[in-house]
Design a protein around this nucleic acid. Structure first.
Lengths: 230, 230
DNA sequence: CGACTTGCTTGATAATGCTCAAGGCGAGAC
DNA sequence: GTCTCGCCTTGAGCATTATCAAGCAAGTCG
């Protein structure tokens, strides 16, 4: 390892997966990994391809898209900076179950699965971090299924915005991270429905103007959501 | 380990997770695990409880239910014999993200997570089996999200039946494994909608009479599904 | 500059699935 | 037997959301 690995090391350290790793191991992994850039829309890996590597989002957003034989596509999730994806499939050397694409311009760290397999054999504790990361993903999927089955479009939109705000109460001001079309697909609704949902949420203290969002009171919005469901 | 562990060992061996484990390890795990029975509807673990163990379904069906603060419930999945569940959360000692209940009368093997942690530390290869099992679950969730976002109720019902048939072509004859209400919840539709869907599928060579299902030609049904979506 | 493209909104219409409500049917209790 | 309960089906009306279509605003390109 030489000094030129510094940015890669920094990238690895930004991921929850590697946060508890001691320096020597991190350096070894970094030495055999590299940073990659992708323009918005560019593919990262394709559904069905053999999974030999996994990724960390260093900057930007990645979307995970699943395609059916008939061509219809579902957007499964998006990943933000600091998140790893495809770790589990890569470790077992299966096929990627979905296609990953850059949702915005994106910087990634690519990690060869074999490296991690070696490290796990040498130091099994690392396996627990992998399992934890995967459990994280599972939990996220669980929440998504719950939302799809139980919540209306408006409710999903509101919850999505609350998630973006990264606060539990008070006012929030932030930008939508990507296209409204992508957001609509993430939530499993049509783009038109998203547009109308934004309109209806205005009555709940949510203002969307272009990519800019302003929520008057997150606590209040939350409370209204719970009341609606009861 | 004594001879009385034999049924437990057989139970472990039925799970994909343990299929590649050498006997001595399997025996050690079996010695510290035990079989449990639950009546239909009985809880196995509760959402939010600390996860210290995971389970193998030895006989019957288990359903995984997620409850929202407002009381609404979504059925996330069901597990059949030979499947493990909650391995990942148990390994990391988190909280169960959902409640598991017996969907039918059920026999389970309960495995203390600490035992597996010990075995992984001693023999890291086992970790790969754990990760594989978890990747399996992830893949299943991915498919479910895809279905919820892209398919109509009728299509989901048809695909569910095809999955139960465990064949790719020809005629099939089998029994529904549990209540139609549970099936409806699994698919994220109302019970009435399920009932009507069965009616509409009659035109596609599917006959449902009570718990008994007869599909005239699975290949044909599959083909019709693909055509509808295109 | 004007023509085009892209991303978003808005409107009208149709389909899908939910809810409420009323039976039917079978199994077990008495 | 018949009563009753739970499960399932069927019907009618309603709410939500998709789809089709048109229009608008901002940016891009020749």
């Amino acid at each position: 390892m030489t000094g030129q690995d510094a940015p890669v090391i920094a990238a690895l350290r930004s991921a929850a997966l590697f946060s508890s790793l001691p320096d020597p191991i991190l350096n070894r992994i970094a030495a055999r990994s590299r940073l990659e850039k992708r323009a918005a829309g560019a593919p990262i890996f394709m559904q069905g391809a053999p999974a030999q590597a996994f990724f960390i989002v260093v900057e930007g957003w990645v979307k995970l898209v699943r395609t059916r034989p008939d061509g219809r596509q579902a957007l499964l999730t998006t990943f933000a900076r600091g998140e790893t994806f495809a770790e589990a499939v890569a470790m077992i050397g299966g096929q990627y179950p979905a296609t990953a694409m850059a949702a915005t311009e994106v910087t990634l760290a690519r990690i060869d699965a074999e490296i991690l397999r070696e490290e796990i054999r040498a130091r099994p504790e690392i396996a627990f971090d992998m399992i934890a990361a995967t459990a994280q993903h599972l939990h996220h999927m669980v929440r998504q299924i719950e939302q799809l089955k139980l919540q209306s479009g408006d409710e999903r939109v509101a919850e999505f915005l609350i998630g973006l705000a990264e606060k539990d109460s008070g006012a929030a001001d932030f930008a939508l991270p990507f296209d409204k079309r992508v957001i609509a697909n993430t939530l499993g609704i049509a783009q038109e429905t998203l547009s109308r949902a934004f309109g209806r949420l205005r009555a709940f203290g949510v203002d969307v103007d272009g990519a800019h969002v302003r929520i008057r009171d997150i606590g209040d919005l939350r409370a209204r959501l719970e009341r609606r469901g009861a």
